[in-house]
Structures are given as structure tokens and as C-alpha cells.
Simulated assay, not measured.
Amino acid sequence: MLITGCGSGTGDDNAKAKPAVEPKPLAAGALRPLLLSQADLGDGYVQEDPSNGEFDDVSVQGCASLENLGQNGDEMMFASQAETSFTYNAGATLGEELHSDRPSVLSSKLRELFGAYTSCPTYSMTAGNTPIEVKVAKSATPRIGDEQFAYTSTMELPSGAQVLKTMAVRKGNVAVLLVGAPALVDRHIQTAVDKLPANS
């Protein structure tokens, strides 16, 4: 259940109330043990190097909010992060990122990121010299954690269409983000969130 922070009492009481102290971000070293492992996922998964550079040289055309996001990428960085990646049965992929920051910062930046990615139903991108047409649709999310965001993107590649689901769940001062085959993201998001600290 999402807590909306509805208060009670008079305006004077609220004026005197001190703002709650937000938990500080976790360090990257504290995030790494919270990442999914092969033991968490089960048979058929092989851990990969998450930084394989597949989409390092990417430019976006036809979506102003994403173009602006790319130009202001440094402003969207979180205080700390950790990541890992898996292949499933030598075909499907599942990538995980953990980000930590103050809860209010995580919330606002995740809203901005997912808002940008779902603002254009279609756009073009170029990865290296490869043109890619992308279609995006918002996706339903399970009611877990404090906030949830998700969208599905279909990329028309020279090798054929590739469908990826991106889902993020914020739990306190940590957010987990899964990207990969939609069935794998749906299957493992609960496990990923369950590994986060209870009082983060």
C-alpha cells in the first residue's frame, strides 16, 4: 500500500512539526550484497559482465524529453549504485541495477526518468551506426515497495524485434531496477525487492 502522508491536526501543529530526517544513501559496497545471484534466480542463469558496451554509443532522435535527458545525464546520477547481468538459457537477458540516495531524491529522479521514457510512444535511436526504431508503452506494476514504475519497449533491430521490460521499485533509500525479457522481469522483481533492507 502506498502511504500518501496524509496528516491530521491543526495548521499550527503542522507548522511546528520538524521535518522527518531522511535515511542517508547506502554506499556501493553495501549495495553489492543485495544484488540478485544465480542462487536467487535458479537453474539456467549465467552471470555476465554488465558493462559489455552494447549500447554505449547511443543517440536518440524524435523525442525531446529523452534528448534532454541525455544532455543532462550527470544530473540524474544517484549517490551510489551497483549492477549485475545474467543470460537465461543462452538467449534472454536480465540486468539489475541498485541505486541508493535519499528517498525524496530517488523518488523525484525515478519519476523524471520514467516520465521521459514514456513521454514518446515512438522514437528513433542510433547505436553506433545501427538505426533502431523504438515503441514504448507503460506497463502495470505489482504493489510492492514504496513506489513502482514500469514500461515495455519494442526495438526494431536488423536481427529482428527485441522486447524489453524496464521496472523499478523504490523501497526507502534503495531502488531496484530490472531490465530484460518481460517474463524474467515479472518473475524476479519480488525476489529482488525482498533482498533490500527492511528499514532502508
Score class of each variant (00 low, 15 high):
residue 4 T to E: 14
residue 7 G to N: 09
residue 7 G to W: 03
residue 11 G to Y: 04
residue 11 G to A: 13
residue 12 D to L: 14
residue 13 D to Q: 15
residue 14 N to H: 12
residue 14 N to L: 15
residue 15 A to L: 13
residue 16 K to S: 12
residue 21 V to H: 02
residue 22 E to K: 06
residue 23 P to S: 09
residue 23 P to Q: 07
residue 23 P to I: 04
residue 29 G to T: 13
residue 30 A to Q: 15
residue 31 L to G: 06
residue 31 L to Q: 10
residue 33 P to K: 05
residue 36 L to A: 11
residue 37 S to E: 12
residue 39 A to C: 00
residue 39 A to S: 12
residue 44 G to R: 04
residue 45 Y to K: 01
residue 47 Q to G: 05
residue 50 P to D: 09
residue 50 P to Y: 10
residue 51 S to W: 13
residue 52 N to M: 10
residue 53 G to Q: 09
residue 54 E to P: 00
residue 59 S to K: 13
residue 59 S to H: 04
residue 61 Q to A: 14
residue 62 G to R: 08
residue 65 S to E: 15
residue 65 S to F: 03
residue 68 N to P: 00
residue 69 L to V: 04
residue 71 Q to I: 00
residue 71 Q to A: 14
residue 72 N to D: 10
residue 73 G to N: 12
residue 73 G to Q: 12
residue 73 G to P: 00
residue 74 D to L: 08
residue 74 D to E: 13
residue 76 M to C: 04
residue 78 F to C: 11
residue 81 Q to W: 00
residue 84 T to I: 11
residue 84 T to S: 09
residue 86 F to G: 05
residue 87 T to V: 07
residue 88 Y to L: 00
residue 89 N to C: 00
residue 89 N to D: 14
residue 90 A to R: 11
residue 95 G to Y: 02
residue 96 E to I: 02
residue 96 E to G: 00
residue 98 L to A: 08
residue 99 H to N: 13
residue 101 D to F: 03
residue 102 R to P: 01
residue 104 S to K: 08
residue 105 V to F: 00
residue 110 L to K: 05
residue 110 L to P: 02
residue 112 E to G: 09
residue 112 E to D: 12
residue 114 F to L: 05
residue 115 G to Y: 11
residue 116 A to M: 05
residue 117 Y to Q: 15
residue 119 S to W: 08
residue 119 S to P: 05
residue 121 P to H: 06
residue 121 P to L: 05
residue 122 T to D: 14
residue 123 Y to N: 10
residue 123 Y to L: 07
residue 123 Y to I: 04
residue 124 S to V: 01
residue 125 M to R: 11
residue 126 T to D: 05
residue 126 T to W: 01
residue 129 N to T: 13
residue 129 N to L: 09
residue 131 P to E: 12
residue 132 I to M: 14
residue 133 E to Q: 15
residue 133 E to P: 02
residue 139 S to V: 05
residue 141 T to G: 05
residue 141 T to W: 07
residue 143 R to E: 15
residue 146 D to E: 08
residue 147 E to I: 00
residue 148 Q to M: 06
residue 149 F to C: 07
residue 151 Y to A: 04
residue 151 Y to C: 01
residue 152 T to M: 05
residue 153 S to C: 03
residue 154 T to L: 09
residue 155 M to F: 10
residue 155 M to R: 12
residue 156 E to L: 10
residue 157 L to T: 15
residue 158 P to M: 12
residue 159 S to D: 12
residue 161 A to P: 11
residue 161 A to L: 10
residue 162 Q to F: 02
residue 165 K to Q: 15
residue 166 T to M: 10
residue 167 M to H: 10
residue 169 V to F: 02
residue 170 R to N: 08
residue 172 G to I: 07
residue 173 N to M: 05
residue 174 V to G: 06
residue 175 A to P: 00
residue 176 V to P: 01
residue 176 V to A: 05
residue 178 L to G: 01
residue 179 V to S: 12
residue 181 A to G: 06
residue 182 P to N: 03
residue 183 A to P: 01
residue 185 V to C: 06
residue 186 D to T: 06
residue 188 H to E: 11
residue 189 I to Q: 01
residue 190 Q to T: 14
residue 192 A to T: 06
residue 193 V to F: 03
residue 193 V to G: 08
residue 197 P to T: 03
residue 199 N to S: 13
